[in-house]
Nucleic acid binder design. Structure first.
Lengths: 129, 129, 129, 129
DNA sequence: GTGGTCTAGACCACG
DNA sequence: GTGGTCTAGACCACC
């Protein structure tokens, strides 16, 4: 999994890192039960402070995407069913994207075909079960 | 158009306001050519400082969603076709949402049905023609 | 001389109008001694307030580009030699443009060829004398 | 780099500051990769509010002249090639300057020699390579 | 009336 | 340390 961070973006590094890890897992680069790099390793690879990586891992843990074990380090969680909080957040964000797309002249078929194309890339850990 | 801001959110007020206005226009509450409240009026209605509103309006102008006329204040822009920068941003954000949904156990049909349902709400200016 | 104003520009209308008139005279659309439209006519043609046109004409008069006579209205002034204030302003603005061009990777030959091409368009009133 | 602002000018401070920084970089006072003063430092040096400096830096960032890194502050961007929007803006402004010069009785050779003299001062980052 | 600028100073987030 | 946000309120320019 390649991590690419934009230091001059206005999105905080820990958020960029969190997003890239989530996308990476979604793409199947890392499956349920497999290990993420250690905090120090990740910090070194990405050229950032280990406090930043630690913060990212804690967030991913709180979101249920990874588990942290003192002995094994961080591992990808098995798939869990979406709770209502997630569904609400998903709908809010999709509504914003829909509005933007609509105001940029995009028609429904085009929007849905992009959604379809992109979701098709995903290989959730556990989907092969 | 009702604006509701969460003062304790970590999303800046001007971003929340920007998102709500975009969503509101997308939902058809305001059509192309119609006026937004004046900077001062919006500031008073939303209970925030007028510089914060001004910043939001400047961003919406830069994104092409509104026009600001010295005489008439701010009005909704006509629909303009998506440029490549927007499409790229859209794909990146959809990929992140797809990954999250997938890791939350959502299947493609379910995800697409949500996308469909939400986009169907949009009433782009000009669609009634 | 066609005047095109952008109402949603952040350049004030009276400045846009002033610039377009200067450029128009420079291009030879109007020669020394010839009349500009009356304030009211110009206001009507451009769809703006006559106070705005009046302000523009006063500025052009102060800059020495036109003369205003109660009976004949506004006419184009004969060419006058540049004073030191103008030369200084010209150098300052050219330095800014040069810096921008240079930082955008433009080389001297390219910059000068653009300057040459554009100046060649000018037909100053009186140059045919 | 010396910054001199005219508080009684009708050009906004943040624009004056932006212009002086661009000219300063163009003159080679600051090269690609080098740091600008921090927002607070610049504000103190120039005797203005830090939000004004912040606004200037945001504009320079949007124009591609500087990069802002949470860790290192603001640094000069490497030279990037001019896009069509810039070329158009450059031509419009040069045409206005040409018209003014022409109406002030300046001849083409004189105008071009000033352009040449002024551009020759510029030291684009990378030109020493 | 409208938006735009600027200030002084507080407070927060990031790394 | 850095930049980013927000406020309250003053003042100005434009139309």
């Amino acid at each position: 999994m390649i991590i690419s961070l934009d230091m001059s973006s206005d999105i905080p590094i820990y958020v960029q890192l969190r997003n890239q890890i989530v996308t990476g897992i979604g793409r199947g680069y890392l499956k349920a039960g497999e290990s993420l790099p250690s905090v120090r390793q990740m910090a070194q690879d990405a050229g950032i402070n280990s406090m930043t990586v630690n913060k990212t891992y804690q967030i991913l843990k709180a979101e249920g995407f990874i588990e942290i074990d003192r002995r094994k380090g961080a591992t990808v969680s098995p798939v869990r069913r979406a709770d209502s909080a997630f569904r609400e957040k998903l709908e809010t964000e999709l509504e914003l994207l829909s509005a933007e797309a609509s105001l940029k002249g995009m028609r429904k078929e085009e929007f849905l075909s992009i959604c379809d194309k992109i979701f098709a890339r995903m290989h959730p850990a556990g989907s092969e079960a």
